[in-house]
Simulated assay, not measured.
Amino acid sequence: MTIPSTETVIPHEPHFVVRMGRMLWADKFALCAAIFLVVVLVIAIIGPTWLGELATKQNLRGRNLPPFDWERGWVWWMGADALGRPLFARIIVATQNTLMVAAGAVVLSAVIGTVLGLVAGFSSPRINQVIMRLADVIMSFPSLLIAVIVLYVLGSSILNLILVLSITRIPVYLRTTRAEVLEIRERMFVQAARVMGASNKRIVFRHILPVVLPTLTTLATLDFAYVMLAESALSFLGIGIQPPEITWGLMISQGRQYLTNAWWLSLWPGLAIILTTLSLNLLSNWLRIALDPVQRWRLEMKGRKNG
């Protein structure tokens, strides 16, 4: 006689990447934004090698060439700038510098701000006060004013621009991380780890940091768009990236004197900034829901239905 098994069969939990893929597929706006950002990233990697020579080659006979002139070739479909250089090639090449500045500033500010926030939230009140006063000092000055002063003193370069923009964004990650740590450190699993003899370093990096990372990931995605707009504003003011380097903001600045008779010089790089920023905002909104255990069930249900 066969005795039926009483073991409970636990359904297999899909891999994290598979779950994220299903949730991304459920949100079509976020899916389109992710695809667009992947394309932009690929362009940033291969752009200078692909069209770098065309982006710098001058052709004074084609000055301010209007867009959609297909007879000259596909690379001229956006028109040409004041020196006869194809705008399409220049936008493709400028993608690398634009994303490099934004990514460098976000990564640097996120790492420094997160570490300082972890220390401030888990250390003694005296250290906490010192770190928070430092953040207050940075936030007391307008970020654009700090950038103008520092770039005027040190000079305009990609490294200085990344450094300035990262300094102005450190308090955002510092305050967010500290607020999360102050709340998480009182939870039961942290108290249990402390009772079992775990060191403060292990508690912070093994138990607290993984809980804080989803919030910081969403914040960094949104902050990427802000830093990119800040870089464009500085380049528009003439204190950002300088020629012969190219960024989208610098292209807008170079085309502002031709707005009345050659509007396309500023339109196309401005449109690139708008679409990239919009995609980042849509993706950050999706990340906020997908990484939240309380809300992501909605995306998971949509993903199962669509699957």
Rank of each mutant, 00 (worst) to 15 (best):
V227N: 00
S156P: 12
G117F: 05
A290E: 03
Y152D: 06
V18A: 06
V150E: 10
G84W: 14
L83E: 10
L213D: 06
G238R: 14
L271T: 12
L271P: 08
V106A: 15
M100E: 08
S284K: 06
G249I: 08
V195K: 04
V111G: 11
I45V: 11
P244G: 07
R298K: 11
L283Q: 05
T49I: 06
A192Q: 10
W248I: 00
E300P: 08
W268L: 01
R72L: 14
V130M: 14
L229I: 11
A272G: 02
V164T: 14
R126P: 00
W297H: 15
V93W: 02
V40M: 06
E180T: 01
A105H: 12
R22N: 07
V137R: 15
R206K: 07
T2L: 14
R169L: 09
M132R: 01
L145S: 03
L222P: 10
D27G: 00
K302F: 00
I127W: 13
N64I: 15
V39M: 03
A80D: 05
V137S: 15
P244I: 11
R90F: 09
L37F: 02
S232V: 10
V153E: 05
M78I: 07
I46D: 09
A33P: 00
I46F: 15
S166R: 12
S232T: 12
A290G: 04
K302V: 04
F68C: 07
E7Y: 06
N128P: 05
R296S: 13
L219H: 03
L282Q: 04
I92Q: 04
A193C: 05
M301Q: 14
S253R: 12
V153P: 00
G238S: 13
S166L: 08
